[in-house]
């Protein structure tokens, strides 16, 4: 099947299997390995990417269903090599330890901050509850999100 899709602003036209997931397309076809997988059942959120600005778990997203739409992955977050506010806040606050949940966590944060410019701590916890982290206990991630929100405000 031929698919046309925009990922991080780049238009790709590729021949793929019809039932490919968005995750496999990103990692295996485009080589964008910044998006991680941890379960393939939608429970861990490590594979979170944005489709038209909304967060989805790419492991369960049929590629065919996002044809023609705008996909943003972790590789598309920085601006010409500079970390964006969310990424910088994760670095400064110790929001990444092993880093495996980090790309998904950052994508969920980007989606949250688009919808809610100044989320409360409990709103952040709810918004990130689909992104499991085993290292941080979430505190430093929440600090990072609060800081990024403050910087964008």
């Amino acid at each position: 099947m031929r698919i046309e899709i925009v990922v991080n602003g780049d238009r790709y036209v590729k021949e793929v299997m019809a039932d490919l997931s968005l995750l496999d397309f990103l990692r295996e076809v485009l080589g964008l390995t910044g998006t991680k997988w941890g379960c393939l059942t939608g429970d861990c959120g490590a594979c979170t990417v944005l489709v038209d600005g909304e967060p989805v778990v790419s492991c369960l997203q049929l590629l065919r269903q996002v044809e023609g739409r705008d996909v943003t992955t972790i590789e598309g977050v920085e601006h010409s090599g500079e970390l964006d506010e969310v990424q910088a806040a994760f670095v400064a606050n110790g929001g990444a330890q092993c880093g495996f949940c980090t790309p998904g966590m950052i994508m969920s944060t980007e989606a949250l901050l688009r919808a809610n410019r100044s989320p409360s701590e409990s709103q952040i916890r709810e918004a990130l509850s689909g992104n499991l982290c085993r290292c941080t206990g979430y505190s430093k991630i929440i600090d990072a999100v609060l800081q990024a929100a403050a910087e964008r405000a």
Binding site: G34, I74, E75, Q87, F90, V91, A96, G99, P103
Partner: peptide, 9 residues
């Protein structure tokens, strides 16, 4: 190693 981790590198 945090900058590499937050950019997916």
């Amino acid at each position: 190693d945090a900058p590499a981790k937050v950019t997916g590198r």
